[in-house]
Structures are given as C-alpha cells and as structure tokens.
Simulated assay, not measured.
Amino acid sequence: MSRLRPASVIVAGFLTFAPLAQAQDEPQVDCEKAMTQSDLNICANKDYEAADKELNAAYKTTMTAMQETDKELGEIDPNYVGAVEALKKAQRAWIGYRDGQCELAGFAARGGSMEPMLVSGCLADLTLKRTAELKSLTEGLGN
C-alpha cells in the first residue's frame, strides 16, 4: 500500500476545491442586461466558453467518424492512412489561425477595456464557424 506524501494531499485538496472557489469568485452577470464593459467582457467570454464546449463535442464526433473512415478504407487498402491524421492536421492549423486572427481583432482596442470583448467575440465567432465545418464533415459521411 502506498502512502501519500503530505504535499500530495495538499495539492489534491487544492485541485478538488479549485473549481468551486473559481465559481464563487466569478461575478454573476445577467448577460441579457449587461451594460458595463466589465460585464460585456464577461459575457463575451461566456459565449466563447459555450462555443468551445460545442466545438469539443463536434470534434469528438468527427474524430469518431474519421476513425471509422480509416477503418473502412484500411480494409480495402492496407497502406491507407488518412482521415484521422488529416483532421488532426487541420485542427492544429485552425487553432493557430483562430488564435492569431483573434489577437489581431483585439488590436482595434489594444490596451483598452474593450480588447477582451473583441478577442472573446472573435474566438466565439470563429469557433462556431469551425463547429459547423466539423458537423458538415460528419454529415457528408452520412453520420
């Protein structure tokens, strides 16, 4: 039986309660009535977080479909390699594009209180568009 070191127990305790502490620290904002720049920034970030969650679900579904495609085509051609690696390559490239494009979008208010809203808005917009692209990939395969 292994014994946990005291430091490990402390770290585990922090990790357990970190999300709870974060949720308590995050201000509650009614995004339908947001007026201040701070509230607008928070709401834009919430929109991005929701879009990112949807993207992750779509990516998982698309990855499963690409794995099935690779399996089917691999049975026909033993030298076939493709769909999964192509999806990973495309997603990595898209992340780089998204991050650079949204950093650029923030320059319209560089250093100002509105910059985070512009960046988060861009992230949400591009993420929703990528989610639609991923969904169309799986729909094209009949999934």
Score class of each variant (00 low, 15 high):
residue 51 A to L: 06
residue 113 S to E: 09
residue 70 D to M: 13
residue 29 V to N: 07
residue 109 A to S: 15
residue 87 L to A: 03
residue 88 K to S: 01
residue 117 M to V: 02
residue 137 L to C: 00
residue 41 N to I: 03
residue 18 A to T: 12
residue 105 A to H: 12
residue 99 D to G: 06
residue 90 A to I: 03
residue 14 F to V: 08
residue 42 I to Y: 09
residue 87 L to G: 00
residue 50 A to I: 10
residue 86 A to V: 00
residue 83 A to R: 00
residue 38 S to Y: 07
residue 133 E to V: 11
residue 62 T to I: 03
residue 87 L to Q: 01
residue 35 M to S: 11
residue 2 S to Y: 06
residue 30 D to P: 06
residue 3 R to D: 11
residue 135 K to D: 05
residue 75 E to Q: 13
residue 125 D to P: 05
residue 126 L to M: 14
residue 13 G to Y: 10
residue 73 L to E: 03
residue 94 W to Y: 05
residue 87 L to E: 01
residue 135 K to N: 13
residue 82 G to V: 04
residue 41 N to C: 06
residue 74 G to N: 11
residue 101 Q to P: 09
residue 79 N to E: 10
residue 128 L to I: 12
residue 33 K to W: 09
residue 73 L to Q: 10
residue 90 A to S: 14
residue 18 A to N: 11
residue 114 M to S: 04
residue 65 A to H: 05
residue 4 L to C: 07
residue 33 K to Q: 15
residue 17 F to K: 02
residue 124 A to F: 07
residue 127 T to D: 04
residue 110 R to M: 08
residue 83 A to G: 04
residue 17 F to C: 05
residue 99 D to K: 08
residue 64 T to Q: 06
residue 28 Q to P: 02
residue 74 G to I: 05
residue 123 L to T: 07
residue 138 T to D: 04
residue 62 T to F: 01
residue 133 E to Y: 09
residue 48 Y to N: 06
residue 113 S to N: 15
residue 56 N to F: 05
residue 29 V to K: 15
residue 4 L to G: 00
residue 20 L to K: 04
residue 143 N to E: 13
residue 136 S to G: 06
residue 89 K to M: 09
residue 72 E to A: 10
residue 137 L to M: 13
residue 32 E to Q: 13
